[in-house]
């Protein structure tokens, strides 16, 4: 399933890509931003960094049994630091359709448009 985030910067596009990934699983509006965790990633370029960022979220969702709905991404170049908020998954409340197995390099692209806005996209395996 393809996901795509748009924003005024790389980091904003990364935040929106994370919202899109949550939307693959459930309606992000049903996920209360009550619990905060921190995530750090490092990769050789922006595209690998997007995949690492999404896979770090997949890992946190799987091991903490959480869903996330609010994301704040910081960092430049090869590094990223993020604060993310969400809550424990509740099948009655969230009706999660699928779990994301991982983010892939298929249709992977991160970059600015001519108008200066950024896009961050890839296919996630479900």
């Amino acid at each position: 399933m393809g996901i795509r985030g748009f924003g005024n910067s790389r980091n904003e596009a990364f935040e929106q890509a994370a919202v899109a990934m949550t939307a693959v699983i459930t309606d992000p509006q049903t996920v209360d931003a009550t619990k905060e965790i921190e995530i750090s990633c490092e990769a050789p370029d922006d595209e690998l960094l997007l995949v690492d960022w999404l896979n770090a979220l997949v890992y946190e969702m799987a091991t903490r049994k959480m869903l996330f709905s609010r994301f704040e991404v910081d960092g430049t170049g090869k590094r990223l630091h993020a604060q993310v908020w969400g809550e424990t998954v509740n099948s009655d409340k969230h009706q999660p359709a699928v779990e994301v197995k991982g983010a892939t390099y298929t249709t992977l692209h991160v970059g600015p448009h001519t108008d200066g806005t950024w896009v961050a996209q890839c296919v996630v395996d479900v």
Binding site: L48, Y59, A62, G102, D125
Partner: peptide, 17 residues
């Protein structure tokens, strides 16, 4: 399950790099 998914993720990256 999660073990296979995580290995797929990690080795895709290692092999790409």
């Amino acid at each position: 399950r999660g073990l296979g998914h995580q290995l797929g993720t990690e080795f895709l990256k290692r092999m790409a790099i």
